[in-house]
């Protein structure tokens, strides 16, 4: 065990080194935890939908609640046109949620605390939303950069600002999730280090603080998955209902 708070983010290889050309595609602890979270999602939903009872069991209630949450989120933010994209947003939300929550277990690895993972997800969303926008509206999708009711004099500046903000979407989407996860886990480790260094007498104060922080981190883990999904819905709304 290292006392370095950044030690928990190290990606190491499990098993033999596999390389494809110059690219290292070995099985790492990050891939292990991605598989664990995917299997956890599948098993929870398999158990939840196995017996479709009128009076639901706890696990069936959980699956129904998560379904309602995401379905309501999509219809509230992106409208009825976004219904076909429900499976994507639902699996995205569940994957991010389970990765965040599995990361809260001691000695586990948080997949979403690595920017490449969140950036890959955000890039998929960004490229997909752009394609959907152009398919639905053709060249008219570029009207997204021209807000209505802007004076002609301001238009060149506004268009550039809108374009920059559009291109910054994948960066802000990925950095938001990554920074929240990484900062939270680093903070937990730093306070854990205080417990060790203050010893048996003074260590109780940071220990109780750590317990409270874990509660906050569980909230953040859920909220960031929710924010990730809701921002995807908002971007999808821009691409489907071009309303300004």
């Amino acid at each position: 065990m290292s006392t370095n708070p950044m030690h928990q983010f190290i990606v190491y290889r499990i098993g033999p080194e596999i390389s494809l050309g110059n690219i290292d595609i070995s099985f790492t602890n990050a891939s292990l935890f991605m598989i664990i979270s995917a299997l956890a999602i599948i098993s929870v939903f398999f158990a939840g939908t196995r017996r479709k009872a009128v009076i639901p069991t706890k696990i069936q209630l959980l699956t129904e609640l998560s379904y309602t949450l995401v379905s309501k989120m999509i219809s509230d933010t992106a409208g009825s046109k976004a219904k076909p994209y429900f499976p994507f947003i639902f699996s995205l939300f569940m994957f991010v949620l389970f990765c965040n929550m599995l990361g809260m277990l001691p000695y586990s690895f948080t997949v979403t605390s690595h920017i490449i993972v969140t950036f890959a997800l955000a890039a998929i969303i960004f490229i997909g939303v752009t394609i959907i926008g152009f398919v639905n509206h053709g060249v008219g999708y570029l009207k997204l950069f021209i807000p209505s009711g802007v004076p002609v004099v301001l238009l060149p500046i506004i268009v550039i600002i809108e374009m920059i903000s559009y291109l910054a979407r994948p960066v802000s989407l990925s950095v938001r999730l990554f920074a929240n996860m990484m900062a939270g886990h680093t903070m937990l480790k730093v306070f854990g280090g205080f417990v060790i260094s203050l010893g048996i007498i003074g260590g109780w104060l940071p220990l109780s603080f750590t317990v409270a922080l874990i509660g906050l981190e569980v909230l953040i883990a859920f909220l960031q998955a929710y924010v990730f999904a809701i921002l995807t819905c908002i971007y999808l709304n821009d691409a489907l209902n071009l309303n300004h």
Binding site: V175, R176, N180, A183, I220, L223, Q224, Y226, V227
Partner: peptide
């Protein structure tokens, strides 16, 4: 969540 992220 959005406000916290800007600080991060």
């Amino acid at each position: 969540a959005l406000a916290e992220a800007t600080g991060l």
